[in-house]
Design a protein around this nucleic acid. Sequence first.
DNA 1: GTACCTGCAAATGTTTTGCGAGCAT
DNA 2: ATGCTCGCAAAACATTTGCAGGTAC
Lengths: 191, 191
Amino acid sequence: MARRPGRDYGPGPRRPWRPPAADADTLMESRTRPRLPPTEAPPSRIERLCIERGLKMTGQRRLIARVLSEAEDHPDVEDVYRRALALDSKVSIATVYRTVRLLEENGILEKRDFGGGRARYDLADRGHHHHLIDVDSGRVIEFADKEFDALAQRLAQRLGFDLVGQRLELFGRKPTEAPRTTPRRRAGGDT
Amino acid sequence: MARRPGRDYGPGPRRPWRPPAADADTLMESRTRPRLPPTEAPPSRIERLCIERGLKMTGQRRLIARVLSEAEDHPDVEDVYRRALALDSKVSIATVYRTVRLLEENGILEKRDFGGGRARYDLADRGHHHHLIDVDSGRVIEFADKEFDALAQRLAQRLGFDLVGQRLELFGRKPTEAPRTTPRRRAGGDT
DNA sequence: GTACCTGCAAATGTTTTGCGAGCAT
DNA sequence: ATGCTCGCAAAACATTTGCAGGTAC
């Protein structure tokens, strides 16, 4: 990695620009919507949950809550940050981190780790589900399966434990598709 | 570090998830080896694998290979580093990182992520298995299950994918025992 | 008014890397 | 020989935090 001697611990450039395919999800939330001043928009789903829990609602939190409520994928903090910026005012990434953590601590978000070093977030009330990650595109597909849940229960039992949580991720590849294109890193094409 | 949306840097993205290698062999190596001086000790299991693959064997690599071969848990880099230091000479943690990555790239180790921010490593030829984590003690129990493997296969198929990898982790708690809130986090109580 | 928020920059913790020196093949 | 390795320190990054000024309630 390039490294300039004499360069002090400067402003850390963050992540490289995402490949174009990342826009698949940007699309869904950039849909035309009247640009209302933040205060006039109807409360997002997450905002309602926050109020229920007595969290102080500031402009930034409302904004982040909106972005997360509208996301249908599993955005990382950077994604949330970018979408928030695009949507409206200026937020600091530190605030995004803080808010996302707050929401997680309040059971509103769930933190996921699909590898790749960044945490990704998911609305908690979407219900119990698992993920299949397309290793070629990075796309994430959600699914649920009763049979698996029962099996997990049984497995834990067999080992002498009560099941209190589980994590199942499948990694797959589309069979007939051209297999050889550049294996895309964990880019954004997530659903 | 402050972040600015304006700039980007080169090769940021890490390697995409690498499907875990499956293997048949399941015999767990027991640590019943005589403690000989490092240079005279018989080649560890990992060392043999390295030689097979034509990797250059240095003193440090032999040492790290030995530590990993003898480990029956899922050590993180720090653990490997400490054990290597205790066992013999001075290694740099950078070398541990480099070696562990080399071994992973050569299919000898598998990288695991049980949360907690540190990667943990596991001999690849221990065979295909999953983990149950005792949430009270942090202990990790390995298990394998044919029925699950078949189910995973079927689930992927149903979603239109070929299964190339999977990750299953169960989190459990001992039922009858007093649910004592033992300090869990990385205390080393790992199996 | 007061306790909590925010933005900024600096700090953290983990992992990677440039560099010159050293070692395996 | 010579190309791969090593140790060291610094870089790279994702994430957290201290602080001073603002804001929700």
